[in-house]
């Protein structure tokens, strides 16, 4: 591992254009936050369409929401919250220099992320069976405005799932780096900013769950 007495300037992970590890970490964290702002705006366009069409077609929204499986949506919410916990613990393990803690928690995060995607796959498959995918094969007996609901359902959850796939890829890279013992109390920026990304994807789902699955359950 690193020599704890070595000055920061000589840390092997310090890039040439930064003065110190602290500056490098601050730049990475700020960079990830700025990137997450762009992600907020990216999903924001979808939420804008959601707000408009839900206000224009409330009945289509209620009817569409009835077709979603509340149990699977809730299960996935719990799974993602678990993954956020293990992610936070993985970052903490890196900060305190526990290699085992990093590896265990990163693997758990990857497992939870994969469970989420598998559940999502079964949900999608059901939508295909029930002719709920917008387009030529959409159930003609339904109010056409429900196509707007299901288009947004697939775009929102699809873009979210794509972010999950990217996140799992990032976690695999982090696991590789943790395995090699790259992270320490001086250098944990990669796992920290990957964690920020992972939590952000969780937050998107925290909003998607009530807005897509839970409307009209009181009927």
């Amino acid at each position: 591992m690193e020599n704890p007495n070595a000055p920061h300037e000589h840390h092997p992970a310090l890039q040439h254009h930064f003065h110190s590890m602290a500056q490098q970490l601050e730049a990475s964290v700020l960079g990830m936050w700025v990137f997450l702002v762009t992600e907020v705006m990216f999903f924001g366009g979808l939420f804008m369409a959601y707000i408009l069409y839900r206000s224009l077609y409330p009945d289509a929204w209620l009817a569409g929401s009835q077709e979603l499986d509340e149990f699977l949506g809730g299960l996935n919410t719990v799974v993602l919250i678990c993954s956020s916990l293990t992610m936070a613990l993985a970052v903490r393990a890196a900060q305190v220099g526990s290699r085992k803690g990093q590896i265990v928690n990163l693997i758990l995060t990857i497992v939870f992320g994969t469970v989420f995607l598998v559940v999502k796959y079964f949900e999608y498959a059901k939508k295909f069976e029930h002719h709920l995918v917008p387009g030529a094969h959409f159930d003609p007996a339904r109010d056409p405005a429900q196509q707007l609901y299901f288009s947004l359902y697939f775009m929102m959850t699809g873009v979210h799932a794509l972010h999950m796939v990217v996140g799992i890829g990032l976690m695999l890279v982090m696991l590789h780096m943790a395995w090699k013992g790259r992270f320490s109390a001086e250098y944990f920026a990669p796992v920290e900013i990957s964690g920020l990304y992972w939590h952000f994807v969780d937050i998107v789902w925290i909003f998607l769950f009530p807005l897509l699955y839970l409307i009209g359950k009181h009927h």
């Binding site: 702002v37 907020v40 705006m41 924001g44 366009g45 939420f47 956020s84 920020l196 939590h199 925290i206």
Partner: peptide, 30 residues
């Protein structure tokens, strides 16, 4: 999640402003 898992509570004021700005701009759009 933002305050504790993402640690914004313990971060610089700049990070807080950046984290909030996305939501402010969403309000403009909506």
């Amino acid at each position: 999640v933002i305050l504790y898992f993402m640690g914004v509570r313990y971060n610089t004021p700049l990070t807080k402003v950046v984290a909030a700005s996305g939501f402010v701009w969403l309000i403009i759009l909506f």
